[in-house]
Amino acid sequence: MSVLLLLRSGCMNIDAILTSIPVALVYVLVALFVGVESLGIPLPGEIVLVAAALLSSHPGLGVSPIWVAVAGILGAAVGDSIGYGIGHRYGRRLFAVMGRRFPKHVNDDTVAYAEHIFRRFGVLAVFFGRFIALLRIFAGPLAGMLRMHYRRFLAANIAGAVCWAGGTTLLIYLLGTVADRWLKDFSWVALLIAVVVGIAAAVLLRHRVERNMHAFIESRRTGSVDQAE
């Protein structure tokens, strides 16, 4: 009985922390982090979006999943468009500056791989790149640098933002509410389950992209014609 009381007390403490966050600030942070990440700066935009979606699934906090999704969509679309303009104007000089500031994320190999994907798949890389961390950072600036037609870029950019931000918010929201309904007395478990599922999916996708990128880099260094996708 004492263990149950302790768990309930812990849940109440977590709820108190979450409810102390101003609702408007949640939306602003989502748009800000997603938007800045889309400019080409490696911030955890996806993590902030997932966290906000989790908050929206928690009863009583007043965070709307609709507005979380809207904030994510606006941040992604506007950030990518600004990134496109910067990449269009400054080209490779932009990536040289980013490489000095963020060498782990932006270097000759990662830029070459992202450029290979963009040249191969065109606007599809803009759309699907929204779901992949590496391409999500490069999408706007790289499309601008490669002089991709802006209207085509904008259409793919908005479509990708809607599917990514809206889909991620909906998925996490549903996972949180369903788990919370099944585990009424331990609502913190719902958040844990959603986080674990999201992290697992992200890790698997990241490993797949990294494997393809390493294969591409190796083939690039050896001069192989049959490069990895």
Rank of each mutant, 00 (worst) to 15 (best):
T177D: 03
Y150V: 15
L32A: 14
G160M: 07
V28M: 09
D226E: 14
R100A: 11
Y84L: 02
I17A: 04
V189W: 08
E115S: 12
L183C: 07
A201N: 04
D109E: 12
V203H: 06
R93F: 04
T168F: 05
A24D: 03
R89K: 13
A201L: 14
V189S: 07
R130G: 12
L183W: 14
R130N: 09
C11Q: 11
R89M: 05
V178C: 03
V50K: 01
A143L: 08
V36E: 05
F33G: 00
S81M: 03
L183Y: 14
P44S: 05
H88K: 09
L134C: 07
A201D: 08
G40F: 04
Q227R: 14
L146F: 11
S224W: 00
S9H: 10
R181C: 03
F33A: 09
G85A: 11
F153R: 06
L32F: 15
T110W: 04
N13E: 10
A165Y: 09
L94T: 14
L204H: 00
V225L: 14
F102Y: 13
I217N: 10
A200H: 07
T19H: 04
G167S: 13
D226V: 12
W67I: 08
F138V: 05
Y150M: 12
A200C: 13
A165E: 11
L5R: 09
H207Q: 12
A96M: 01
A96I: 04
V203T: 07
S9N: 12
S64C: 08
F216T: 07
L205I: 09
V70R: 08
S57L: 02
L39K: 02
Y90K: 00
V178T: 09
D226I: 12
A51T: 15
G122C: 11
T169Q: 10
F121A: 07
F33C: 05
T169W: 04
Y84P: 05
I17N: 00
L39A: 06
L25Q: 11
G167Q: 10
G75D: 06
G122T: 05
G85Q: 04
I137L: 15
I193T: 07
H88P: 00
R120F: 02
V26W: 00
A228D: 08
N157G: 09
V196A: 15
N212M: 12
L191E: 04
A161F: 02
V3M: 11
W164G: 02
V23D: 03
L5C: 01
M12C: 00
V68N: 09
I117P: 01
A112K: 02
D80N: 11
Y113V: 00
V195I: 15
G166A: 09
